[in-house]
Design a protein around this nucleic acid. Sequence first.
DNA 1: TATTCTGGTTACCGCCAGGTAACTACAAAT
DNA 2: ATTTGTAGTTACCTGGCGGTAACCAGAATA
Lengths: 125, 125
Amino acid sequence: MRDERFCASNCPFTRAIGTIGNKWKPIIINVIGTRTIRFGQLDSIVPLISRKVLAEQLKELEEDGLLERLAYKELPPRVEYKLSEKGLAFLPILESIKEWNCKYEVAPMPGEADKKSRVNYARMV
Amino acid sequence: MRDERFCASNCPFTRAIGTIGNKWKPIIINVIGTRTIRFGQLDSIVPLISRKVLAEQLKELEEDGLLERLAYKELPPRVEYKLSEKGLAFLPILESIKEWNCKYEVAPMPGEADKKSRVNYARMV
DNA sequence: TATTCTGGTTACCGCCAGGTAACTACAAAT
DNA sequence: ATTTGTAGTTACCTGGCGGTAACCAGAATA
């Protein structure tokens, strides 16, 4: 999921893309935002992701220092995730991507993608 | 390459990620920057990319309005690519990703990834 | 005549990202 | 005794991403 070639680049930008440049990580970081959240919550809030992939992504985000994982020694288990300072510093970038998209996105073709065919991501917000 | 599910989302951020959230597009946009560049140049400058994938990416970027393609009716053919207003507006975001990475990136483990194993992306700049 | 130059496109193929379903541990509730 | 709830992990399997190599037009050059 992480691109090892990119991560081994001499270019800091390429390395950044190698680390967070896939489709799931920006979504996950954006969903977490400033809150503390549990695995199960993420699994139900992040749409279309499988537990397996979510677990992989979270592990990598933690390894890359974007995420902090707090596991309570309880049963049933409880694990909480929150963004680290590095992760929080990434939020404004995601925000600017959102603004950029809103400003420049072309309107979808009239009949092409009607609302019913759209996944409902309202929960995310 | 584009994630159609994401592109069909109600969330503008998710749609943005569906459009530009893969590993090649940010790299290509960054390489083009403010200049006008030809296909062959891109192919040799962007490291590790195949002509096939490059062509696909460029086509999608053009469809999504980030890129302008100028084909001269010559032989051998000449095609020039440059960022549109939308594409240019994305550059500062890439710049902030670069800065973010430089600021927070963890130093690589001493012996783990030595310089010789690193791809040389110096040409990119 | 043959080669070169350019910007792709196409056919073919292998590998792996990512999905599904089953399974874990153990306490508390029914 | 059985079910429920949580956070994963594992085995298994398939679609499609992406790489390679061949091929195209047609003018210019050798």
